[in-house]
Write a protein that binds this DNA or RNA. Sequence first.
RNA 1: CGGGGUGUAGUGUAACGGCUAACAUUCCUGUUUUGGGAACAGGCGACUCCGGGUUCGAAUCCCGGCGCCCCGACCA
Length: 415
Amino acid sequence: MKQTQLFTKTKKESPADEVSLNAELLIRAGFISKEMAGVYSYLPLGLRVIKKIEDIIRDEMNKIGGVEMRTSVLQNKEVWEKSNRWDDEVVDNWFKTKLKNGGEVGLSFTNEEAYADILKQYISSYKDLPVYPYDFKNIFRNETRSKSGILRGREFYWKALYSFSKDEAEHNVFYEKAKDAYKNIYKRAGIGHLTYLTFASGGTFSKFSHEFQTITGAGEDLIYVDENRGIAINKEVYNDEVLESLGLKKEDLVENKAVEVGNIFSLGTKFSTPFDLKYKDENGEEKLVIMGSYGIGLGRLMGTVVEVLSDDKGIIWPESIAPFKVHLLMLGGDQSVKTEALKIYEELKMKGVEVLFDDRVDTSAGEKFADSDLIGIPYRVVVSKRSLADGGFEVKKRIETNGKIVPFDKLMEEF
RNA sequence: CGGGGUGUAGUGUAACGGCUAACAUUCCUGUUUUGGGAACAGGCGACUCCGGGUUCGAAUCCCGGCGCCCCGACCA
């Protein structure tokens, strides 16, 4: 993509109404735009990152048997009354609105009921199980206080998968697979080294739920990490009894602030009971379906990556979720430079390398470098009179301080 | 929802109760530039968040509302 096609521009100054690093950098670099507290729009660059993250998650979900679908945002009151989660006394963060005829509808704040209600139409035999449907969609929560830029919004984009299993044993097998899939997601998104499987409060049907917590000062959770075992425990369940049951020793644990980038948990029959979600087993006996839920906020993940991976010049995207792989900078308006830059741009595109081509002609070199550092694309390729005189292009990774000159015919080998 | 802070061109800031609300940046025009946010010249852009009040006079003081940020509470 040519940079002149992008309507966004970078900002020198941080917005006065944002303190969090993720919002500051993402707004300055032109990835997101703030609509109101806790509500952000994704601009072209930001959407590309979200889509990359989405692709990774989709891939990992499909690998463990997930099937993608999409539930509606507008939700039926009657469905939620079945599980007693419609009333504002019970769930106080619903956004609700009214139909012309006066009927009430809600905007999805989670998906359990929607899935249970839909799947009831299709599950009747043990042969129909297990199934693992999931969706990506916007979720709305009327938080009393949104905070930390895009880490905690009132509208956010998430993936939610629900497992429908015949029994606990079948559920547990999948649950373990989901853990691994989640670990893969964070590893692939570039924050695996800072992200810990964390034991947290579980609810009615299991002792624990499992969170995936990424260590960062921007987080709002406190966790205790056992570095050797690679696991952590959330402060909310931190007590002697729990430590003993998990075989954790106090002296091995380090307290850290962390942000919850994912959460999986066993629901048991919490929803299959109110929805009467049953199947007939081999003996014709009716049994309740065992459910599990597996959620991950994509915007929050994107914000967490920015919190964790940046320097004083800007964002440092991991290659896997960067908006582009290569940032091609054309310095100066010299005709030979223009010709070479355009040539290499076309060649990169042809080879399938995602490239953002800074083809602006009246922009100084310094400004292009500053923009490039701020946006944070992994590879920077400079075409200038100097580089051409030196025999090619300058290639520099975002994480490096010095680049190298690569000859014309060797450039493609760099990517 | 409690507490604290804050609200002025697109962005970041300034302005004692008193002249046409200033500066930087962005943007536009022109000339010169092109390896780390270039130089010069000229120009556009603001009902100072909203509503009341005090005053000869309010961006400035007072009251109310709203927005935004932070701390806390809350967060299937």
